[in-house]
Design a protein around this nucleic acid. Structure first.
Length: 763
DNA sequence: GAGTTTGAAACT
DNA sequence: CAGTTTCAAACTC
């Protein structure tokens, strides 16, 4: 299964993903581009998180950046502390699931709903916008300005000293734009540089690069991994570089992204780079990326969590990575598919599909990368190269602040991201699969990394994550080099060999991970794997499109063709590269090509409506040609149809509906009748079969064979003839015949009883 | 089942 | 963005 990923697949992925140089360049942004967060700027009203999700979180040794609000804050990166980033407005008084991982220290910080510092060095801070106040100093964290802070970065230093960073409110401004991810805004890049004891954060406004889509906010966190805890930023030993790129769409519940990375006090031996593409999410509300360090005592684990939302569902992205304490370079590529647990959603429009991404390696670093244009959501796991490792091994003597994260050399970790997506097909079924909103974080103590995306709405990420066809899976290429990805339809996720779903035994970060792990199997559309597997899709009949166009329903729904009647089908594992190209082409044409067409309308409008509207001309929108009618929804103002009869008061529509209802009733009645008949037959067989076969309950009539019946008839005829020969009156003749019939019956019964006695078993 | 109709997707 | 072509599903016979 895993070998389905061909090496050339790497080349198919967006260049932004594969190009490590590009990342490095971004990390090397000039300092002058980094501007301090305008704290004086009035904070905009709380906006849905989808507009404010940090796009990139980079963990690197970059030193250029503005100082954190608090200079005394210790860099949490040096001590396995998990960092949680909570953009304001993204979290409304709800803590992430990580909060449950252990004893938490909660601060009633203004704009911060809660701060959790579990014993496992994980710090979770939930920021609530709108409440100006100073950050609780009891934590020793930097003071947050009430205004102009959209992102709160908190972490615990090796000494346990918390670090908090606030992002300028401008980060959230794009959120004001309404629309499903179409809003274009100038991307804001936030670079955070944390050295040991000297966390720094910077904000940079960059011209929008993305061709289309929601504003892109980039958050880059650069931190030096130095267990020595150098007080000088100059002496930074870069170890891990991570990026988190997320996009948010308007009006969406807060999300949380937990980003974790392993920080080892010893030189990082895992010099590798793993990339993880996060499949588009239909509307995930919460995204959590959790990175768990290896179990090595010297490899404390850190994580950054961006709590985004809670109420409507949570999307969790969990990345587990192991950092080998051994100084030796990891030369082996350990690709372990990880179990993906679909996060259930609450209030989901329909069932969701998941997208799973499995990186090849287990790098200590995780980078989420947003690729403009492609709208793919990627996570890159980057491990410091030899140079950085050497620096660390030398006791963090490296004083060069400009040290950039080493390019990935090896990928050892397997990361899977599961992203449930509401598919159009699901909507058509009008059978919403309620999903639980509980965010789940899966962690492992071993090398495997896991990325889990919540199954519910993730509007903020939607622009990117929803771009991929539902159920898309990026699987690591097997032995295809350092990196390889296969975009797999969700159904194929279940086909991945069991080892790929290695159960994660969490020993470290999250105590709550265990229950999740038990059900870590990927589910599709909110269905269990078995249910998903059983879900039958209508086979396509494509002949010319190679099933790589949206004409093909299979392709349009992000599924591989299976049992279809298509000709020259490329929508399968054998044509990964073509499929990837086709997906990219579709996304280039329409970034929301794979998003459900039927979605929620505006407030007050029908819950379901065609996002684009139909364009019917001849069907009157009363045939299945019409997508609205097919979806059993009314045409709306979005439609450009002619002669539309698919509106509420349309008599034609009512007539059709009545007919349809009547037909449905008939079908139901017929079905019920068939069911009843079948049940009766089954019951009859159930009752009779044992008697016939077992012998214990053999009934007399079972002896009324053809021969017996004929013999009886002969007896009766003989009796009738005798009566006739003796000139007996008819009444007497009838009596004689009936008496003879009675005797026959008695004989039959007697014989049956005798046979039962003689052969009580198996007669 | 073959042929026609239809409208979305793709193309220019 | 509009017009045209292509395509596969829906529909008809």
């Amino acid at each position: 299964m895993m070998d389905v990923v061909s090496p050339e697949l790497n080349s198919l992925l967006p260049d932004e993903i594969m190009d490590t140089e590009a990342i490095a360049m971004e990390e090397e942004l000039p300092t002058e581009h980094l501007a301090a967060p305008p704290q004086s700027e009035p904070e905009p009203p709380q906006v849905p998180m989808e507009t404010e999700l940090p796009e990139i979180v980079s963990l690197c040794p970059t030193t250029t950046s503005m100082q954190m609000t608090s200079t005394d804050a210790q860099c949490s990166t040096s001590s396995g502390t998990q960092l949680l980033l909570a953009p304001s407005g993204l979290i409304s008084g709800t803590t992430t699931s990580a909060k449950t991982t252990g004893p938490a220290v909660t601060q009633n910080l203004p704009k911060i709903s809660s701060v959790t510092v579990p014993a496992n060095h994980q710090l979770i801070i939930n920021k609530v916008s709108g409440a100006p106040a100073a950050v609780g100093k009891s934590l020793g964290a930097a003071v947050l300005k009430p205004e102009g802070q959209k992102l709160l970065v908190a972490g615990l230093s090796k000494t346990g000293q918390p670090i908090m960073l606030a992002l300028p409110h401008t980060w959230n401004k794009p959120a004001t734009t309404q629309s499903t991810g179409d809003a274009k805004a100038q991307p804001t890049q936030i670079k955070m540089v944390t050295t040991v004891g000297k966390p720094v954060i910077a904000f940079t406004k960059k011209p929008a690069v993305s061709t289309a889509g929601p504003m892109i906010t980039k958050l880059i966190i650069t931190k030096a991994l130095n267990n020595k805890g150098l007080s000088s930023p100059a002496s930074v030993a870069p170890v891990v570089t991570g990026r988190v790129v997320t996009q948010s769409t308007p009006v969406t519940p807060p999300r949380s992204i937990t980003f974790g990375e392993t920080i080892s006090t010893v030189p990082q031996n895992t010099s590798g780079n793993s990339k993880v593409a996060i499949s588009p999410l239909k509307s995930p509300s919460k995204l959590t990326v959790v990175s768990v360090a290896s179990q090595s005592p010297n490899s404390p684990q850190k994580s950054v969590t961006l709590p985004l939302s809670v109420a409507l569902g949570q999307q969790i992205l969990t990345v587990q990575q192991s950092a080998t304490t051994s100084p030796a370079k990891a030369g082996t590529s350990q690709s372990t598919a990880q179990t993906v647990k679909p996060v259930q959603t609450v209030g989901g429009v329909g069932t969701s599909q998941f997208k799973t991404i499995i990186p090849l390696t287990t790098p200590p670093n995780v980078q989420q990368i947003q690729v403009p244009g492609s709208r793919f959501h990627y996570v890159r796991l980057v491990t410091a190269t030899t140079g950085s490792s050497t620096a660390q091994s030398s006791g963090s003597t490296n004083t060069n602040p400009s040290i950039q994260p080493a390019k990935p050399v090896m990928m050892n970790a397997a990361v899977r991201m599961s992203v449930p997506i509401v598919s159009a097909q699901t909507i058509k079924q009008v059978v919403p699969k309620p999903l639980t909103s509980a965010a789940q974080v899966v962690t492992t103590s071993q090398t495997p990394q896991r990325l889990i995306m919540p199954a519910t709405h993730l509007p903020q990420i939607q622009p990117n994550l929803t771009s991929l066809p539902p159920g898309t899976v990026l699987a690591p290429a097997h032995g295809s080099g350092n990196m390889g990805y296969a975009v797999l339809p969700a159904p194929y996720v279940t086909q991945i060999p069991q080892p790929a779903f290695v159960t994660l035994t969490s020993s470290s970060s999250f105590s709550t991970a265990t229950p999740i792990q038990t059900q870590a199997r990927l589910s599709l559309n909110g269905l269990s794997t078995s249910e998903a597997a059983s879900r039958q899709r209508k086979p396509c009949n494509c002949t010319r499109s190679q099933c790589l166009k949206l004409y093909c329903d299979c392709f349009a729904n992000g599924e591989f063709c299976n049992n279809c009647n298509c000709v020259n089908c490329f929508n399968n594992l054998d044509h990964e590269s073509e499929r990837l190209k086709a997906i990219k082409a579709c996304l280039d044409r329409n970034p929301v090509a794979f998003k459900p067409k039927i979605g929620k309308g505006k407030e007050g409008e029908s819950d379901r409506r065609h996002s684009k509207g139909c364009n019917c001309k001849k069907s009157g929108c009363l045939k299945n040609y019409c997508e609205c009618y097919e979806a059993k929804i009314m045409c709306s103002s979005m439609c450009k149809c002619m002669g539309c009869k698919n509106f509420e008061e349309s008599p034609e529509r009512k007539t059709l509906m009545h007919l349809a209802d009547a037909a449905e009733v008939r079908v139901q009645q017929q079905t019920a009748a068939k069911t009843k008949l079948s049940s009766q037959i089954s019951d009859l067989l159930t009752r009779t079969t044992p008697a016939i076969t077992s012998g214990g309950g053999k009934l007399p009539y079972t002896f009324v064979t053809k021969e017996v019946a004929e013999a009886t008839c002969d007896c009766l005829l003989e009796q009738a003839e005798q009566a006739e020969l003796t000139n007996q009156p008819q009444a007497v003749a009838e009596r004689l015949i009936l008496e003879e019939f009675g005797r026959c019956l008695r004989r039959i019964i007697s014989f049956a009883g005798k046979a039962k006695t003689d052969c009580p078993i198996n007669c």
